[in-house]
Design a protein around this nucleic acid. Sequence first.
DNA 1: TTCTAATGTAATTGT
DNA 2: ACAATTACATTAGT
Lengths: 172, 172
Amino acid sequence: MASLTVSAHQNRSMPRQSAFSIDSILGLDRPDQRTALSAPYRPWTDVKPAGQNRGVVADSDVSVDVRVNEDGKSYSKSPADAYRRTLNWYIGRRPRTAFSSVQIKILESVFQVNSYPGIDIREELAKKLHLDEDRIQIWFQNRRAKLKRSHRESQFLMVKNVLSDLQSSRER
Amino acid sequence: MASLTVSAHQNRSMPRQSAFSIDSILGLDRPDQRTALSAPYRPWTDVKPAGQNRGVVADSDVSVDVRVNEDGKSYSKSPADAYRRTLNWYIGRRPRTAFSSVQIKILESVFQVNSYPGIDIREELAKKLHLDEDRIQIWFQNRRAKLKRSHRESQFLMVKNVLSDLQSSRER
DNA sequence: TTCTAATGTAATTGT
DNA sequence: ACAATTACATTAGT
C-alpha cells in the first residue's frame, strides 16, 4: 500500500515515443508539495496512558461498548483477546465492534424511516448509543448494502420463477 | 416489499435539535433535494427505456463479474462493456472500474511527477491504458484527495504526539 | 458457514 | 478542482 513505484522498467510494451514527454510533464506549474505518504490514521491504535475514561480525550476510546450489552454478559477480557487485539493493531484493522441488541434495535428502527441519516442524526445516535459517529455511519452503509443485496436476490428469484413458468407453460 | 429508500442526506453544521424528533429522523428538518428529481445525464445507460432511474434504488444485477484481471485491457468502450450495460446495469451508476495493477502502477508513477496532468497528458494516458479520459481524471482527483487526507492525518498525529509528550514530561 | 463490521476506492453531487 | 458522501467489492471476525 502506498508504495512508491519509481521502478525501473515501466515502458516495455509501449512504443518508445514522447508518451510522457518532458515538456508535457513539465506542465507542472503547480503548487505540488510532495509529502511522503503517511500511515492511514488508526486512532484506535494509540496506546492510552493513564486517562482511560471516556470523554476525556478527543477521540479513540478503545473500549467503546464492551459493557453496553444488556445480557449482563460481559465480554471476556482474556489474555488471548488482548493478544489478538494487539495483533490487530499491528495489522491496523479496527477491532470489530459488537453491537448490543438494544443498539441494533434502535438503529434498525431509525433505518426503517430514514436509511440516509445526516450527520446530525448520526451524532445524536452516537451519543445515545455510546458509539462513535463513525460506527453509525459504517453501520448504515453496510445496512444499505444488505438491503440492496436482498433486493437483488428476490429479483433474481422472481426472474427465475418467471422463466420456469414460461418453460412449463410451453411444455403443455 | 415496502422497501423505502427515502434518500436524504444533509450537510454538516446544522442546528442542534432534539434527539429523536420526527423531523430529525425523517430528515425533514432541512432542505433536501434528491427525493424526486429529474434523471441526471447517464450516458452509459443509453439503451434503457425502462423509465426514470433513481440512482439509489436497487440495481439487481446477477453478479456479472466486473473484474478484468491483470494486464489491462479493461473495459471502457469494449463491446463487452456495452453488453453488461444493457443487460444488467439499467440504473444510473457507472459500474465501478477495476484498474489493473499495471494501470495503477503507471498512473502512480505519473502522479509522482505531476498530480495535475493537463488534458493532453490525460488523453495520452487514456489511450495507452485503454481507459476513458474521464476515468483518468477521476482517478487523479481521488488520488489527490487521498494524498491530502494522509497529509492531514499525519499532521494530526504529529500534533497529538507532541501533546502527549508534553503531558508525560509534565508527569515527571 | 453465514452474517456483517471494517477497509479501500471508484463514482456522484454540489459548490 | 475540491469536499463530502455514496456505492461497491473485499477482507476478516464471531
